[in-house]
């Protein structure tokens, strides 16, 4: 029960300070779940993001549910998903009800410009950290650059990018991974 409350509170905080899409949660999750609670490793966070990108639904909810399940099975997943959604429900309801001109308040616009810059810097530093852990050989470098370029330069759905990389891994993974004696698991 205590852990469920903790999960709810952590994901509530994460939801409250997420500005933008599910990716912007990454530095917060790294801090709360990996560094403070030590419930997961950063490799596992990448794995959950990876799975969330190919799982239907909102990435933020998917990641939260994966982490919650990992920690406390069924109810952990449910509670975490509800936790990450609660701030949205409260904040947006208030904005829609009383602050319809919210974005036209000068100070609000200024604050959000600053916040966007901070979120960008935070996400970039987290990417640098994760790069060292998930891009481990030349095939990974190719997959990394290819998916970045495909995503920035074309309008191909991320689903196909992820599918292509998954199939590449399935076909070539054994040869590449045995070479460096890798034996991690994601269960």
């Amino acid at each position: 029960m205590r852990i469920l409350l903790e999960l709810y509170w952590i994901f509530f905080k994460v939801g409250l300070f997420t500005f933008g899409g599910g990716y912007t949660m990454l530095p917060l999750l790294q801090k709360e779940v990996v560094e403070k609670k030590k419930w997961l490793t950063s490799e596992e966070i990448i794995d959950f993001y990876t799975l969330s990108q190919c799982t239907p639904g909102i990435i933020a909810v998917n990641v939260s549910t994966y982490i919650g399940f990992k920690k406390k099975r069924f109810w952990g997943g449910i509670i975490s998903a509800l936790g990450v959604a609660t701030p949205s429900i409260i904040v947006i309801t208030v904005i829609a009800a009383v602050l319809t001109n919210f974005l036209h308040i000068k100070e609000v616009a200024y604050a959000f410009t600053g916040i966007r810059v901070a979120v960008t810097a935070l996400v970039i530093v987290t990417i640098v950290d994760m790069y060292k852990k998930s891009v481990v050989d030349w095939l990974c470098i190719i997959l990394y650059i290819a998916s970045f370029l495909l995503s920035v330069l074309t309008s191909i759905s991320p689903v196909f990018i992820v599918l292509g990389a998954g199939i590449t891994g399935l076909v070539l993974g054994t040869r590449m991974r045995e070479r460096k004696g890798d034996n991690d698991d994601i269960s």
Binding site: S147, S151, T174, R177
Partner: peptide, 26 residues
């Protein structure tokens, strides 16, 4: 395990693309 090995860098590539868009906007 093999599938995840291939998925991880692609997933990070997509996150980097999102960060790049964020940078462009901000």
């Amino acid at each position: 395990l093999n599938t995840m090995y291939g998925l991880r860098p692609a997933s990070l590539g997509l996150i980097t693309a999102a960060a790049f868009m964020l940078f462009k906007v901000s």
